[in-house]
Design a binder for these strands. Structure first.
Length: 240
DNA sequence: AATGGCCCCAACCGCCGTTTC
DNA sequence: AGAAACGGCGGTTGGGGCCAT
């Protein structure tokens, strides 16, 4: 009996056809009742497997591309604060998954942490830090809205484009289509990338003169980071 | 060209808290 | 109220790709 059951369920890498089918049924039925969805869809996968595939790969609100230095710093800080609370950290990085952050930590950041202590300092005080905090908050609000049921994804992207056209000609058009879904880079990513490129190019280096190319120094007690912490209550509904 | 080691990340596993019936 | 189903989370694994030898 169990053997039959196991035989019936596929494992391992997902095929393109399976992905398409999963997307179709999630669109139809929503992101819930994964076991039922798996059964109804005819996918020979467990509900858990379907959920994982959607959450970590197919969900159109996920960001593609490598983590930015800014995101890396946030991961550093939050990990110092919360430890291996990957999903909690992921909620602070819209468009990134817990799995993604966990993998990134294990393969990139852990070594850096092992190589040095957290008490080395990037000093974010001054206008640059303030600007960063502002951008962080702004984009987070945006993503909170994107995840809110009352806004359709497409509609919100339009809104985002319009915002950019009005507010910042240079950030307009940073929309990048993915192959499958016609999705954008997240506003968060685009804005941070844009901001970094437009800001003093050496901001990070300036404030971490003691760091090497391979090591980023972090001040866990940065004032702006504390503000982000205070801001948590307000933005905790990011994914809800 | 072959191969061994390493890195990266998608996918799985097992546990536990929450929801549903 | 309690059992079963479901969903979320953190840890682990396996395989593909890259690179040095």
């Amino acid at each position: 009996m169990d053997c039959k059951k196991e035989e019936a369920l596929r494992r391992g890498p997902w095929l393109e056809e399976e992905d398409k089918r999963l997307v179709k049924f999630v669109t139809l039925l929503g992101e819930r009742r994964w076991d039922s969805l798996a059964r109804v869809s005819g996918l020979k996968r467990s509900g858990k497997s379907c959920r994982l595939r959607w959450m970590n790969y197919l969900n159109p609100s996920l960001k593609c591309g490598p983590l930015s230095q800014e995101e890396e710093i946030i991961i550093f800080q939050l990990h110092a604060l919360w430890g291996n609370k990957w999903s909690k950290i992921a909620r602070r990085l819209p468009g990134r998954t817990d799995n993604q952050i966990k993998n990134y930590w294990r393969t990139h950041l852990r070594k850096k942490v092992e190589a040095q202590n957290y008490d080395k300092i990037i000093d974010w005080r001054g206008n640059k830090g303030e600007e960063l905090l502002h951008k962080y908050k702004e984009t987070e609000i945006m993503w909170t809205r994107m995840k809110t049921r009352e806004y359709g994804f497409d509609e919100t992207v339009k809104e985002y484009k319009q915002r950019n056209m009005e507010n910042d000609k240079e950030t307009n058009g940073v929309i990048c289509e993915t192959e499958r879904f016609g999705v954008t880079n997240s506003p968060y990513e685009n804005r941070i990338i844009d901001w970094i490129s437009k800001s003093d190019a050496n901001l990070l280096e300036d404030h971490s003169s003691s760091s090497t190319d391979n090591n980023i120094n972090i001040n866990v007690g940065s004032w702006w980071f504390q503000e982000i912490m205070d801001f948590e209550e307000f933005s905790c509904s990011l994914w809800s």
